[in-house]
Design a protein around this nucleic acid. Sequence first.
RNA 1: GGCGGGAUAGCUCAGAUGGUUAGAGCGUCGGAUUCAUAACCCGGAGGUCACGAGUUCAACUCUCGUUCCCGCUACCA
Length: 679
Amino acid sequence: MKQFKRTTVTSALPYANGPVHIGHLAGVYVPADIYVRYLRLKGEEVLFIGGSDEHGVPITIKARKEGVTPQDIVDRYHTIIKKSFEDFGISFDIYSRTSSAIHREVASGIFKTIYDKGGFVEKTNEQYYDETANQFLADRYITGKCPHCGNENAYGDQCESCGTSLNPTDLINPRSAISGSAPVMRETKHWYLPLDQHEAWLRQWILEEHKEWKPNVYGQCKSWLDMGLQPRAVSRDLDWGIPVPVAGAEGKVLYVWFDAPIGYISNTKELLPDSWEKWWKDPETRLLHFIGKDNIVFHCIVFPAMLKAEGSYILPDNVPANEFLNLEGDKISTSRNWAVWLHEYLEEFPGKQDVLRYVLTANAPETKDNDFTWKDFQARNNNELVAIFGNFINRALVLTQKYYEGTVPALGELNDYDRQTIDEFVNVKADVEKLLNNFRFRDAQKEAMNLARIGNKYLADTEPWKLAKEDMNRVATIMNLSLQIAANLAIAFEPFLPFTSEKLRRMLNLKTFDWKELGRIDLLKAGDCLGTPELLFEKIEDETIAAQVQKLLDTKKANEVAAYKPHAVKENVAFDDFMKMDIRVATVLDCQKVPKADKLLQFKLNDGMGERTILSGIAAYYPNPEELIGTQVCFIANFEPRKLRGVISEGMILSAEDADGKLVLIRPEAMVTNGVEVK
RNA sequence: GGCGGGAUAGCUCAGAUGGUUAGAGCGUCGGAUUCAUAACCCGGAGGUCACGAGUUCAACUCUCGUUCCCGCUACCA
């Protein structure tokens, strides 16, 4: 393996439209922080970069909705996020933001360099334009009627009512979210990063030279490379973001995914204006990106392609991506408020940062999605942190207090059992190191925990409380060794549980503190005075857990109620407008699933005039489509035909959408003649 | 639908290059103990390794197919 001089560690930039939750922590920030603390403790040169991602359309939408500026939104969440990371002990060397002046300069510079080298391709295409507000409209800025569910307020990229992904051109009666006027199509020019031109070296670099990447990361990259890479637009027509720094680009900004990863670089430069380059350009620097699985392609393909196109940067050596953490069986969701928010946890569990760190690491989604439950949180605290780790420390300190008034007794002659115990905990260092080097934090922490188990076993087997009546020399040796184990725990747990480690060091009066010393039995000297003993962890009661569970149940209930709220009644229409819709009844002659399409059913209808084919996206709700044959349905007869999956669909079959999104066909109460109109 | 990842004890997870009775933590049951936050220590029970074929002397491990979960992507007139 290549030897590096220093390590640059980045952690995915959280998007500043909401606070940070346990999913972010378990997937990215806790493992990154453990790794960085471990390297620092070893005395290695390491830099840990974080920051808020503050551009992009969702932030402008949120700002508009609240009647504030985008800057207000990002200021609010950047402040919350930064504070909560600090309080939680995520040890960034810098946590900055992409709305900073220096970031604008760095991102522009990188764009300009690539541009000057001819690294972009220009393309012109048509996009909706708001003539009243004089600006092009991002997908999210166009609202209209969802063709799927009829929701009048669907966005150009997605209908939030039915969850459907849309193109702006799909919307019926599109309107500008800015002025309310009807947008028109207009030509606009954008710059594209031609990923296809980078495919060859990416293939060699990832598939041949980085076979050691985690299976999920390697597999996802291979999948993309095998499909063939496409050029990706790097600019948008928007006024929130970094202006495209070339002539003729007025009103255009860098697309948020282009500017965000550059934030790693600009934040480094902000921290180290004079020496930042060695962290990004020296081949002897090891670059690591800690991310969640949703970010794999950006960090393994797109960002490296950008850096390569620029020409002077190093590429990541590894991209340890985690899977997702669920909460009590359901996907974590910011919009559905289904999350444990870090800033709320810090308030509700003061001083318990390490409990959450421990649980999230013990249950980290390293190889597959995992579930966080409050019951598990309580069990791990009470049965592991309190009962094994805390209890051992407490036993060692209480006994020392009792027999030696809080000073470290001298180590006497070692017997075979002592030596056997020492051998066991000396091994812990190598084991933990090996696991951490492979980003296996869950197992590494478990291995560190073994130190406490060894300590508990040592006390149980040697029984110093019995020997105290006959052989105080022996007791001195036992207590000395027990305290050495406690001191080792303080070192071993610093990366995992930094608050606990500090507390323990204070209680032991531990002066020296270095990863190299892990495994030694002379960390404390005879005669050293110990500090004041206190409990390392405290039990978490059932009521506390019940309250958290209740909080989630309340959220769930609130979500259900919200989901059942009928949509607002639409604008009145004239009778004539209604009469334009030609809704009719037909009998289903044939109905089957469209091959290779999950959601589509193909209907053959008798509409009284002949046969008509209509496709409908209701396959999920009618698993036995043949049962529909012979029944009647309502359909729009004068809908413009459209080709779907190679089949011409001549109309739209009407369904009612239930609160849970389920679609139910609309049909006449009694059989009627085919082709009659619905009025 | 395409591609990728996953499916192993009640729960959460380990199990390079196929090879003796499939492991750990927690939970559970039993025992021992009292220095310790009813904690610790010892021991037991618990698995047809998702399902079905195949390759092999031998498969949790390799190949093919099926089912379910997750992500990316297509699709919802």
